[in-house]
Design a protein around this nucleic acid. Structure first.
Length: 726
DNA sequence: ACGGCTCACACT
DNA sequence: TAGTGTGAG
């Protein structure tokens, strides 16, 4: 008889899956003749045989350890096969391993929520799948249990001492009268065994897994029996497991915190932690950490399995130890080129494969000074908006480096830009891209949505004067713009920039992004939903005319735009411009172009008002036009922009601008384009959109638009469309 | 003169 | 926010 599900049960079934010496497996798959041989993966063969970053199990038997040098490994295991990490652009290139990790994730993500915890580890929340199995095909009703599941290690079972361990496990898995939580765990065990076999079949990789009621325990378990095995942690044995577990074995406690627990509190095992009241732990380690410690001592961790199959950042870095330390701007520049190219390539892949874009570039370095005073000082990290394209990244990273170097050298900064070095040494460089967001397919679907809106409604509502004020005062400062990379060309040279005011300009950049085919994939399947929403809106909004004429007439030529006087040049407002381009997918085609450069290339930045209006009889349009009236402050700011461009600073724009969102569904040339000033898009407007589109739109707007809760009683049409009403 | 290169996240 | 620090593998 099935045991009733407990009332307030928050029992979860969590698995941690850990690839066995993953890099080695990847190399062995590539070179099957290596299978069975003691193998390790090394990078940089030149110095002492390179550093080991992965060691196969056959080699471990000889005492070979990670963090050994290749030479040491050879000593303890002369027949070891040392495989070098692929090198590209003068540095280790982990692409093959990342891609292999993705293969695994693809398989593992089929059965439940999946969190890619690292290049070779995932967490799975199998609660739903386990519950479903318990209802539909409970293990106790199965005629046969898969052998892979029978090979599981179940903590608390005396299977290891038994002559027939598998029979022991079979009994546990199929026990009729076990605890509900154990039954779910049994289901999880079967599911994980199946998944692991699936991984092996589809990728040729073996992995180990832990199955438990939370992430912490699952992670602990997956490491207990390797390789190619799985371990289950029934609730009943959690206490026994943790009581004697060395505190530093726990995830997050392997470093200083764990050391502090040992030396400051005399805590050597997780069980020792039980003595300390939550409050004591909070007093010493802070509220969050204190509570967390108190909980993990009791075997509970509330951390959810995040739904994340892709990394949240991409980075490319290299160290320059000892005599390799960099001492000239030129060498830094050279390596930044290499790193930027790799990063750019990965960003392009991400864009192609996942339709994601990163928004922040961060530069980091480690350094030391020969004049040893303040030798402990760290080289500061710096970040700025990310512009796509290897050359742009390199340029911006170099400027971040120079800004950092100024900070780093402080008062010692004499002659820092000269190629003759001046006492500083760089021992590592890295560039990374973060704030990665999925491009709203709504960029396409929204565009389509607006087609419908155009042809079915108008708005009579207009912005109020105070809205305009508010907008003018809004201090968004980022300009995004998208244009065809063939037209985009950065003509600035690598001339040394003035460092003095660089810091003040950092973090405030306008850029354009070629989204390539990113918007292509949304298809006609959205038609229905849009029609539905149109109806709804039609009901809500009383007074509307037809937009159809305008949509049809909207093939604005540049001349018309100029005649209308609402091109960007007259508005003095920066824009967010997002267009679709159907060029190839090479990274060099993604470009981010400063607004100023677009102007110089005669690129038209259109405004919503380019959509042909009916003969200016409407006071509504006049009202909207006020948005575009250049005001003194923005004019003077643009003066600064011009100056900053002359300085060869990284396309900086001062604070104080609002931004605009530009949608195009037919590409730059002859396409249909709308611009939306991001700061003026009222949240209530977004809330009127279909949920999917809302979600996508938010993901795009969030970095640019601060929360703006004022409800202006707006309509979509008022913000998204030019008005020609009454 | 070496564990290199990535990642995530908490904190401020 | 941007920047620092910790921790993991």
């Amino acid at each position: 008889m099935p045991v009733a599900k407990p009332e307030s049960s928050d029992v979860r079934i969590i698995a941690h899956v850990d690839m066995d010496c993953f890099y080695v497996q990847v190399e062995q798959r590539k070179q099957p003749c290596l299978r069975g041989l003691p193998t390790a993966v090394v990078q940089y063969n030149s110095w002492k045989g390179g550093g080991l970053i992965a060691v196969g199990y056959e080699a471990r038997k000889f005492g070979v350890k990670r963090s050994m040098r290749g030479d040491e490994a050879k000593k303890v295991c002369p027949q070891i096969q040392l495989i070098q990490v692929p090198v590209a652009r003068g540095k280790a290139d982990l692409k093959t391993y990342r891609d292999a990790g993705s293969e695994v994730v693809r398989v593992l993500s089929k059965k439940g929520r999946c969190e890619r915890a690292s290049i070779d580890e995932v967490y799975l929340d199998l609660t739903d799948a386990a519950e479903a199995m318990l209802v539909e095909t409970p293990p106790e009703s199965m005629e046969a249990i898969d052998v892979e599941a029978l090979k599981s290690h179940v903590l608390g079972l005396d299977q290891e001492e038994q002559s027939d361990g598998q029979e022991c496990v079979r009994k546990w898995l199929t026990k009729c009268d076990s605890d509900y939580r154990d039954k779910l765990l049994a289901c999880g065990t079967l599911i994980v065994a199946e998944l692991r076999m699936q991984v092996l079949k589809e990728t040729e990789f073996t992995c180990s897994a832990g199955i438990a009621h939370n992430k912490m325990l699952a992670k602990l378990a997956s490491a207990m029996n390797k390789p190619a095995q799985q371990t289950v942690v029934p609730l009943s044995c959690v206490k026994g497991l943790l009581d004697s577990l060395p505190i530093k074995k726990m995830k997050q406690l392997g470093g200083k915190l764990g050391s502090s627990l040992e030396s400051d509190l005399g805590v050597n095992t997780v069980g020792d932690l039980l003595k300390f009241p939550e409050q004591k732990l909070q007093e010493r380690y802070g509220i969050n950490t204190g509570t967390w410690l108190w909980n993990i001592a009791r075997g509970s961790s509330g951390e959810e399995v995040q739904c994340r199959l892709l990394p949240n950042s991409h980075g490319s870095g290299k160290s320059f130890p000892g005599p390799q330390a960099l001492r000239t701007i030129a060498s830094v520049q050279h390596w930044l080129t290499e790193l930027s190219e790799e990063l750019s390539e990965r960003l392009s892949s991400d864009l192609d494969q996942n339709r994601r874009m990163a928004h922040t570039l961060t530069f980091h370095a480690t350094a030391y000074r020969l004049s040893d005073s303040d030798s402990h000082k760290k080289f500061p990290s710096k970040s700025c908006p990310l512009r796509y394209g290897a050359a742009k990244i390199q340029e911006d990273a170099l400027n971040l480096f120079k800004a950092g170097l100024r900070d780093y050298l402080g008062s010692y900064r004499a002659n820092i830009l000269g190629d003759s070095n001046n006492g500083w040494r760089i021992t590592s460089l890295s560039v990374s891209a973060s704030k990665i967001m999925t491009i709203p397919s709504g960029m396409c679907s929204i565009t389509k949505y607006l087609h419908v809106q155009h042809s079915s409604c108008t708005s009579s509502e207009q912005p109020q004067d105070n809205d305009i004020q508010e907008t003018a005062l809004h201090s968004g400062c980022t300009n995004y713009s998208v244009m065809d990379s063939n037209e985009a060309h950065d003509e600035r040279t690598g001339e040394e920039m003035k460092i003095e005011d660089e810091h003040d300009r950092l973090g405030c950049t306008d850029y354009s992004v070629d989204l390539c085919e990113a918007f292509d994939k949304s298809t006609g399947e959205e038609k229905e939903e849009k029609a539905t929403h149109r109806c709804n809106l039609d009901e809500e909004e009383g007074e509307r005319g037809s937009w159809k004429d305008e949509v049809m007439d909207r093939s604005c030529s540049s001349k018309e735009l100029e005649k209308d006087g609402i091109v960007l040049e007259t508005t003095q407002l920066p824009v967010v411009t997002v267009s679709k381009f159907c060029s190839g997918s090479n990274e060099s085609e993604f470009q981010i172009i400063p607004i100023e450069e677009q102007k110089s290339k005669n690129t038209r930045i259109t405004s919503p008002l380019c959509m042909k209006r009916n003969k200016s009889k409407d006071k509504g349009t006049a009202s909207i036009l006020r948005f575009f009236k250049p005001d003194l402050s923005s004019a003077s700011r643009n003066q600064e922009v011009a100056e900053s461009m002359q300085d060869n600073s990284p396309s900086a724009v001062p604070d104080g601008h609002s931004s605009e969102l530009r949608l195009s569904d037919h590409g730059a040339q002859g396409g249909e384009i709308w611009n939306y000033k991001v700061d003026e898009i009222d949240i209530s407007v977004i809330e009127e959109l279909p949920p999917e589109i809302q979600k996508e739109l938010w993901s795009w707007l969030r970095p640019h638009k601060r929360s703006n809760t004022a409800n202006r009683g707006s309509t979509i049409a008022r913000y998204f469309l030019p008005s020609k009403s009454s």
